[in-house]
Structure formats: C-alpha cells, structure tokens
Design a protein around this nucleic acid. Structure first.
Length: 791
RNA sequence: GCCGGAGUGGCGUAAUGGUAGCCGCGCGCGACUCAAAAUCGCGUCCCGCAAGGGGUGAGAGUUCGAGUCUCUCCUCCGGCACCA
C-alpha cells in the first residue's frame, strides 16, 4: 500500500474534475433540483483566512450529497466587488479599484479551488461586470418607474472618514460600520428607495419561512419594528389649530398632562410668530442639531427641553389646556415627531415631568405598584372609560378621539453614495425636463475609467469631475443635460445576484423565465449572521418588488437560511490581520491537505456555533483520514454482523445529519465506524459504501480510494448509499436496571423482550438490592430499562 | 431596559424525558525502537483500595426517572435601544 500523499492526490483529482466537468449544473426535467447558495464574498486584499471557507465547505457537502442522491444541483460562486472595502483598499495601495478587484478575485478563486469545492465555475459572476450591473441599473429604473426610488434632500447619516452618505443599516449604533468613525447628520441630495412600503410584507412573510433560524427572523422583526397605536389630534390655542401625536397607549389619554415635539418638528416654524420665547426655542433647536449621538448618551440621557410660551395644547379627552415642550428625547423621524406625554405611565415622561414640575395623573390602576406604572390594567380617572381594561379602552378611546395607526422603525433606504466604485445611478438631470431615466436601450451606464477616484468630501461624487462623462444629452428633449453622479451602495448587486446564477449569460432579460422556474427559489442559503438586517432585508425587498412585476415566481427568495458560526482565532478573538492571529488556509492545505481542513472545520462543533480554531486539534482529522486510508489493509471477504449493522447505522446518521447541518456528529459516527472496522476488518463492498458517505466531506481521498478499489467514474456522481432498516438493530440489547431511579446494573436481553422476561432476568441480576423489598411500582421501557420502585 | 441564544471533564464537544461525558484533542502508562517520531494497546469527571457516593452555572418544582420540561436567580454571547 502506498502512503497517503495528500498533495499528489488532491492536485490530481482537482485537475481531473475540472477537465470532466462533473460539477456543471444542468436544467433537466428528469431530476429534482437543489439550488444551494453561499453568500458570495467580498474579495478583499487580504485573501481568505481559515474562517471564510467554513460555510462554503458546508454547502459543498450538502450539494455533493444532493448530487449523489440524484438531484440536479446548482452550487455557484461569484464576487460582490463594488463598494467601500475594495475602494478603500485601492486608495490605500494606489491601484485602480478595478485592478485591485481583479487581483483579489484571482487570489480568492485560487484559494477556494484549493479546498476542492464543487462550484460550477462556468456560472461565475461579478457584480462589477457591466453585463451584470446593467441589470442592477435596470431594476433601479423599474423602482423609479413605480415611484419606489425618489430624490430627497433630508439630512442623512454622513461618514466624515469615508466621505459618503450612509443608510441606517450601515451604522453600528452611531458609528460607521466600515471604519468606526462617528457619523454626522448632513443635509444633502440623495436617492432613496421606499423600502417602508414593503415593511408589512417583509414582516408578515417571515411566517412563511419555517426553515429560517429564529434569531435571524427575530432580528428582522426588531429592525422592522412594527408598533400599533393611534394618531390623536391635540387642538392648539392658536393656528395652526392642531398637533397630531402618535401613541401606542391611547388608553392613557386622560393622563396626558403635556405634549412634546421634536426639535426638528415643522410646526415650530409655523408657530414662530405666536411663540413669545422664540429665541429660547431657536437656541434649543441649534443645540440639538449640533449634538451627535455620542454627546447625547454621554449626558446620561438626562432629559432637556424648553416649554413653548404663548401657545398651549388641549387634551381632547379632558378638555384641559396643557403645556407644549420641545425636547430632543422625542425623535423627529418616528411616528409624527410629536408625542402626548403621560408621566404616570411612561418612564421617560415621568422623568421629564419631575424635572419640569408637571402634574402626574394616574389613569391606570397600578394595583399598588409604584408610579410610573407602564403595564396594562384597569382604567381610572378616565370618565366613562374608567373601569375598562387597557385593551378595550385602547380601541374605544382611539375610536372616539383619533384613528388607528401603525408605524415602523425601518426607514427608507438611502441608496446613493458619493463614491466612485459603485454602479452609476442611471438618471439624467435636464434643466428643462427635470429627472429623466436613462432609456433601457442605453444600459449599462458604464462607470468611466478614471485616474482620480478618491472621494471629494464635498458631498459630490468623484464622477462629477469627469465632464466628458457627466455632460450628456437629455433623452427626452435632446438638449444639454447632466448625468447623475452618485453611485449605488455596496448592497445593490447582492440584492439580486442569486437570480443571475440561474442564467449568467443571458443578455436579453434579467432571468430567462424557463430557467428561473427551474431553479427558483434558492433552496438553501448559508452565510454570516451579520447580514440579518442588511443584505437579507434588502434582497427580500427587491425580490418582492420583482415578484410584483411578475419577473420572479416566488414571494421569497431563500427557502432555508442557516448562518455560519464564526471561527475565532486560538486566542478567542476575531481572526484579523490587525491582531496578527490569522491562520491562512493555504498553509493548512499544504501541510495537512484540503480534506483534513474540511473534516476538521466540520468536526469542530455545531455548525452555527462560534468556536476557536485550534491547530493542535487538527491532527485528529488527519489521523481519521489516515485510518480510512489504511482500511485498504483490513479487507476481508465475509462481512461481520456488527460491522454491517454499524455501516447501516452510519448511512442513516450521515444522511440525516448532513440534511440537518449536524456535520460534527456525522463525522463522529464515521469515526466510530472506522474504529470498529479496523478491529473486525471490512469487505470491499462495505468499504465502497463507507467512502461514498465520506466523499462529500473529503472529496479527494475518497476519489483516490474509489479508483484504487477499481471503480470506474467519479465517486461524486455515484449513487448515495441506502440503508436497510432491518439491519439497524441487533439481536440483543442492553437493558438498564434501576432501583427507585438509580442505575444498579444492566442486563443483556433479546430485542423486544416482554416486561415479564426482562423483569425475571433483572430480578436475578439485581437480587442483592431487591431482597426483602416489595415493589411500589415497576416502570418498563421496552429495549431500554426497567425500574423497580421500592419503599 | 426589552427580545433572542447558550452555560456539561484540562480543551472542542455528545446525549428521541431513560446508563451523563459518545467522538476528538491533550495527558498518563505500556508495546514496537539503540533512540525518537509515527503507529498500536490500556487508562483518563471528582472522592474512594473497593463496595459505594457525588457530579451537567445556583436554587426550587413536575416525574418512577431531569443535562433535557416548568419557575426564580446568576453569568456569558447576539440583536434592538429615549422608537412614545
């Protein structure tokens, strides 16, 4: 027997597979399909570390098993290469982003190929390819056409370091997710997508995704942030004659002893001439505007505010005049930007009321609990509503004084970036015709090749400086016009790329309906949990939009979603160049082989758990493969009963475990099998069956063994083994004997022995504990245990 | 603060309400070897020579029986957070 030489074997088979094209995807009506997808990577300049391939290995195993089970498999790979990381890398290293991306992709691809993944590279896509982003632009035009893309001049988040506007989803708290800089509010012209119009469906349809992990759905629910309540008009003592507030607690209306508007509220300007302390109000507005989130939290959330003089509001329920405050604890962008304050039943209002000596009137019976009492209860001090439970009163009071209203925390998607490296927004600005979409036939609007692509910091994209590109003619009036110079955010291309894999060469339509109907939807989607409230929300939004246009056939893009648990560095921190704790997969593949790396990463622990890398433990995976290799020396001619039983158990468990993404226990079972087979020997047929089970995990060594066993063709297109139910159980089984729930001994008994038979045997075996005792009860579990309960 | 998830040997972990610690790493002893590596065998939760006893973050409960179910609390991880 030759030695197990991973280098030779792995290189040989990778070349063979590339040549034979066994992983090529085909649409065929004869087979069931499995569309297995990885969140495609951002090809950074640092290359892969060992954590990156974990998810790819898992989908690889899943897709390989699916293929062996006779399914038609689509398992593609591509590159999400527009956006800030690639651009910042390019600026830092003084190379053009396009060059940098090309180089990074080449490196990533080499690294991925070294791991032996079964991607169909003929379907490779790249979001920065004009053939691809033509369709990203096309979708934008459709959004524009349907009124879902609009221009706005509202203040938005601005990162002073990246020098671009950002979406809400691009923030971590109040810092830029990319660079950690505290963001500012900055008014500027921008393009926005009306994702809020889909908020309810994005929320509701989560119910139809039973195979999504609960925490991802929960994150999305939090992010969408639906709350149901009411809008109630509070009359003012001057014109304009009312202020509309949003509340989720209309049942506490009688306890509203003041109202608050956000500093940015438009009513303030309108009331300017009636407010006698206008300079105080203005000063407060200026202060609030200058404060960023950090400063606000640094103040310990102590409430500040100023009362409006000369204007009061009227509580519509009590008909009492109440003061109006401007305070920054009310957010302008949520609800109506104004609230009714009920200090008896809201902690923030209570704190504010104490500071400003505003009356606190309880209207919910707190049943002895301290004020503020924020729970539900029975109404009091509320005229004819007193005595009603909160839930009833909510509806009644809303009916009488306001109207039901639902609000969402999710905000429209700020979709323009003042950066070079993104898809140009296909819009033309004409002095005469206004905003004119680029005609479909003129797509793609190509990103011009330029020398200077650094951000300008002026709120203008670097594209604005390229007059040759900017100046164009208006498609409508043929007069002089200018191109939109903002580009799309990083998340644009990834919002629909999974559709492109179905038909990457298609020049005519987004997707060929025939192919779309064959592959859609994605059956299994695997990637990082950090995408829960960004990519996964954006992609669902675009998909629903395309669904409404009749372009795709399902309401949801991804049927099953599993998030990868991070592989941390050995020191327990994140693996990062910054910490100097990165393990490079190339080194591991070189020293131990790709198969060892694959088996190790899947054996580390539960797939979705974050676990620290440990090079010392890697040896276990290598030893396992060596022992599988050496089974060649343990061949026997007649099968052993217990080995045969173990084999069938292993077939069942490995199949079930791969389906459930429990790779660690699948490998554990295979190790148990090998431990047994080493002792008892193994027949050629058993060996073949076993390596077929191992093939998705360790594709190279199993392919080599397959050919050494004289098999023709690739193991990876061979038939997935079937287990025989009748071979799963042995003739005898171990039965635990308990006395009053304590394990005392165990006996061997024929499978399916009756209670009487087991009792007789057990009584003999456990005689020393049972002598002279009477049974209160006997609990018998067939094939498992018998429990004598004694006094 | 609210909402999710999780706490098991030295370490990674495993256990349809039914023998807690499978599988692997590490470690100890032994075989092979001049020696070492590799490999193989035995052992490895704690106390105890043993019989036995204790043990799954803490405390209670349900049950013949709880790592698993229920309640209270503690710790860690993740999401949201002045969202009315």
């Amino acid at each position: 027997m030759r030695q197990y030489d991973h280098k030779k074997i792995e290189k040989k088979w990778r070349n063979a597979w590339a040549k034979s094209g066994i992983y090529r995807s085909k649409e065929t009506s004869r087979k069931k399909k499995a569309y297995v997808l990885d969140m495609f990577p951002y090809p950074s300049g640092e290359g892969l570390h060992v954590g990156h391939p974990k998810g790819y290995i898992a989908t690889d195993i899943y897709s390989r098993m699916s293929r062996m089970q006779g399914k038609s498999v689509l398992h593609p790979m591509g590159w999400d290469a527009f956006g800030l990381p690639a651009e910042n890398f390019a600026i830092k290293n003084k190379v053009h982003p396009r060059r940098a991306v090309e180089k990074n992709i080449k490196r990533f691809k080499e690294q991925l190929q070294m791991i032996g993944l079964d991607y169909d590279w003929t379907r490779e896509i790249n979001t920065t390819d004009p053939d691809f982003y033509k369709w990203t632009q096309w979708i934008f035009l459709k959004l524009f056409e349907k009124g879902l893309a609009y221009q706005s001049f509202e203040p938005i988040n601005w990162c002073p370091s990246c020098q671009t506007g950002l979406a809400n989803e691009d923030l971590e708290g109040n810092v830029c997710e990319r660079c950690g800089t505290v963001v500012e509010k900055r008014p500027m012209r921008q393009w926005i997508l009306r994702i809020t119009q889909y908020a309810e469906r994005l929320l509701q349809d989560l119910e139809f995704l039973p195979e999504w992990q609960e925490h991802i759905k929960e994150s999305q629910r939090n992010w969408i942030g639906k709350s149901e309540g009411a809008e109630i008009d509070f009359p003012l003592t001057v014109t304009p004659e009312k202020l509309t507030v949003f509340t989720t607690r209309p049942d506490t209306l009688f306890g509203a002893t003041y109202v608050v508007v956000a500093p940015e509220h438009e009513m303030l300007g309108k009331l300017r001439s009636r407010i006698t302390n206008w300079t105080d109000i203005q000063r407060y507005q200026t202060e609030a505007a200058s404060k960023n989130e950090i400063e606000r939290t640094a103040e310990g959330k102590e409430k500040t505010g100023v009362q409006l003089q000369g204007v009061r509001a009227v509580n519509p329920a009590t008909r009492q005049e109440i003061p109006i405050f401007v305070a920054d604890y009310v957010l302008s962008h949520y609800g109506t930007g104004a609230i009714m304050a009920v200090p008896a039943h809201d902690e923030r209002d209570f704190e504010f009321a104490k500071k400003f000596n505003i009356p606190v009137i309880p209207v919910i019976d707190s049943d002895g609990s301290a004020i503020p009492y924020v729970g539900a209860g029975t109404l009091m001090n509320s005229e004819e509503f007193s005595g009603m439970p909160s839930e009833v009163a909510k509806a009644r009071i809303t009916e009488r004084f306001g109207q039901p209203k639902t609000t969402y925390k999710i905000r429209d998607w700020v979709f323009s970036r003042q950066r070079y490296w993104g898809e140009p927004i296909p819009i033309i600005h004409c002095d005469r015709c206004g905003i004119v979409p680029v005609p479909e036939k003129d797509l793609p609007v190509k990103l011009p090749e330029v020398k200077h692509y650094e951000p300008t910091g002026t709120g203008e994209s670097p594209l604005a400086a390229i007059s040759k590109w900017v100046n164009t003619t208006c498609p409508k009036c043929k007069g002089k016009a200018k191109r939109e110079t903002n580009t799309m955010p990083q998340w644009a291309g990834s919002s629909w790329y999974y559709l492109r894999f179905m038909d990457p060469k298609n020049k005519k339509a987004l997707v060929d309906p025939k192919k779309e109907r064959y592959w859609a939807p994605v059956d299994l989607y695997v990637g990082g949990a950090e995408h829960a409230t960004r990519h996964l929300i954006y992609a669902r939004f675009w998909h629903k939009f395309l669904y409404d246009l009749g372009i795709v056939s399902t309401a949801e893009p991804f049927m099953r979603l599993i998030s990868v648990g991070l592989i941390q560095a050995e020191d327990g921190r994140k693996m990062s160049k910054r910490f100097g704790n990165v393990i490079n997969p190339d080194d591991i593949v070189d020293a131990y082989g790709a198969d060892t790396l694959r088996v190790y990463e899947m054996f580390m622990g539960p797939f979705t758990d974050a676990i620290a890398w440990k090079t010392a433990s890697l040896i276990g995976a290598r030893r396992f493969l060596e022992r599988v290799w050496r089974l060649q020396e343990k061949l026997v001619t007649s099968p052993d009963d217990s080995t045969e039983r173990d084999l069938h158990k292993t077939i069942k468990k490995v199949g079930d475990d791969i389906r459930n993404f429990k790779f660690n226990t699948a490998i554990s079972q295979m190790m148990i099998f090998v431990n047994g087979a080493e002792k008892s020997g193994i027949t050629k047929a058993q060996y073949r069956t076993f390596i077929a089970l191992l093939a998705p995990f360790a594709p190279h060594i199993t392919e080599e063994l397959w050919s050494l066993l004289g098999q023709r063709g690739s193991i990876h297109v061979s038939k997935w083994p079937q287990y025989d139910e009748s071979k799963l159980t042995a003739d005898t089984t171990t039965i635990v004997v308990q006395i009053s729930g304590k394990v005392r001994t165990q006996i061997q008994a024929p499978v399916d022995s009756t209670e009487k038979e087991v009792q007789d045997a057990a009584e003999k075996a456990a005689a020393k504990w049972l002598v002279g005792k009477s049974y209160k009860k006997i609990v018998f579990v067939a094939n498992r245990l018998i429990n004598f309960v004694i006094d």
